[in-house]
Nucleic acid binder design. Structure first.
Lengths: 328, 328
DNA sequence: TGTATTTATGAAAACGTTTGACATAATATG
DNA sequence: CATATTATGTCAAACGTTTTCATAAATACA
């Protein structure tokens, strides 16, 4: 590959001068600049960013770890993160933890070895201390890792509250909530807290069943419903699902069993990612997380940290929005 | 950050020795090895891959350019590519061209500057010569770039044929095909060729309308149908859409207009990505591209090229599969 | 004219690795 | 005992940049 030396030789100047032309530093003669620029063009010179990164100790790469690359929630998030990051000249190294703790550890270590400038953690399979030891700018999506690691999330509590109240307002008396796994202390668990408290406040019968997994296929969800919910499905007149896939599967299941939605059973989901936006038969009532803002915020928060400018570095919680669909 | 020098100092040996321990080269005393390993552990030493990359002229990073990161076709593809690449210790730098020629050019140049080991091109907004000048291992998805750049695709012609014949077998007489943009010479255009030829062979009336865009939302598709198709929708009894989103939108449109699917109108799509796999109301009849195999193949083809081993380097075309859904 | 300032350029060190060329000690071979 | 082999380790160059320092020429100022 052609290096700065080749350019220097071709232009008849020193490498210093070439570097100065590239970076617009110091004084450069008009003639010299032209000679150098011509040489660069003729040789199709591509400055080696790796060398630069080594010297400056800054790679302009940020790593992102997600639990499932093919999940619309995360692919959309990555989409927005990339959009903002690339504006600021950062590139994205994507890692797919597959919800596997060992893989996640390995990815973190890999990112450290590769001297990325920072990490966006969207996958959470480790204990919080492990993230604290990373010693590198981090931001987190949907989980509090430590007081020094900013997080971004939608207002999960409010989302759960809005969803629950919506069902109640629509006349539901007996509510079920299908939550995600509640074992780790994740912010989406607040949806379930809100569900419970809101029901209590309104004096409404309610129940929570765990079972909405990120990586679940339609069949996984279907089987879960068949196993855990089916027998007392008619006991409920409103169900709040912690994600849209589960909500959609539940709709299909109920329909197939002859239960009319929304007349007999009302269903509300959570997320409103690309899948849900495309869905029209029926369209799903759901709670929208503003993935565009979340993604941009994750990037900007991380980049602020990296560049150590004293702009905003606070945890950010975005408003959610009720999307009225056909299922309530 | 702690460097090899710090480890050497802590272990009381030279940097060469530390390097030897890490890479298992040359002779190392048992005691020495232990001392070095302890020092590495104690200092939490992370060998700088950037320095390594500079020296070895190999970054173990591959770049991938897609037209839309949030599109399930590409996020699934990336998912599989990452799976295989990470097995082989390669990392993925993702780029989102947004179907914009200038952005695509910039990304290619960026990837060159960053000395990625190779590029997987899934976005095609430039003339073929531009790719030939890249001077770096490349593989391409769904487009022939040159005789030296291997491509991977599903058997688009066969897919179009299977789809068309399926409609005919189901009794359709007047067929419409909604194709993607046919301007660039892309392999998916073969679906349209196949449609036309198959109809001719069977002596069936047919028409092709361009309009299935990758980045289209439900509304975009809806408006397109409303504008271009609606008035003569009842003229057709079978429609082959070049992607599943268009097929789904069309289904919803037809239903809303009181046209019974599949009784009065049969609809078949193309892709069978995560959106379609989740869809059950109705499930879509479609042609499946094996994204898992395509993704793995793209990676392995590129890595073979990078590592210059004389394993298989041929263009690869994967069989498609008819997925029988409720819309035909 | 003399001197300070501005402009233009180059040499060399540094970033963190790997590696080929050596150096030395210990052990084996003849 | 001389020599070859094996084991262990050190030195320094190299990868492609940026940047500090030094120097030289040109210009400005008195």
């Amino acid at each position: 590959m052609v290096s700065i030396k080749d350019v220097a030789k071709a232009a008849g100047v020193s490498v210093t001068t070439v570097s100065r032309v590239m970076n617009n530093r110091g004084y450069i003669g008009k003639e010299t600049r032209k000679k150098v620029e011509n040489a660069m063009r003729e040789l199709d010179y591509q400055p080696n960013q790796i060398a630069r990164a080594l010297l400056k100790n800054q790679s302009f790469v940020i790593g992102i770890i997600v639990p499932d690359l093919s999940h619309p929630l995360f692919s959309e998030l990555i989409n927005w993160i990339e959009a903002y990051a690339s504006e600021k000249d950062y590139k994205l190294l994507v890692c797919n933890s597959l919800q596997n703790a060992e893989k996640e550890t390995n990815y973190i270590s890999m990112l450290r070895k590769n001297r990325v400038d920072g990490i966006i953690m969207c996958s959470h399979n480790l204990d919080v201390e492990e993230y604290r030891n990373v010693a590198m700018p981090i931001v987190s999506f949907d989980r509090i890792l430590s007081s020094t690691i900013p997080y971004v999330a939608s207002d999960n509590y409010r989302g759960g509250e809005v969803a629950t109240n919506h069902l109640i307002e629509k006349g539901c008396n007996k509510l079920l909530h299908i939550s995600g796994p509640l074992d780790y202390e994740l912010l989406p668990n607040r949806r379930s807290d809100a569900f419970q408290l809101t029901c209590m406040k309104s004096g409404i019968d309610c129940k929570i069943i765990q079972g909405a997994h990120v990586k679940a296929t339609f069949e996984d969800n279907w089987n879960f419903i068949d196993r855990e919910i089916a027998s007392h499905l008619t006991d409920y007149d409103g169900i709040f699902c912690s994600n849209d896939f589960m909500a959609y599967t539940l709709y299909v299941y109920a329909s197939k069993k002859g239960i009319k939605v929304p007349e007999q059973l009302k269903i509300i989901g959570y997320d409103y990612h690309s899948f849900t936006r495309m869905l029209r038969n029926p369209s799903l009532t759901t709670i929208k997380q503003p993935l565009d803002r979340i993604g941009k915020r994750l990037s900007s928060l991380l980049i602020n940290q990296i560049e150590d400018n004293d702009l905003d570095r606070n945890n950010t919680v975005f408003d959610v929005e009720l999307i009225q669909g056909d299922t309530t």
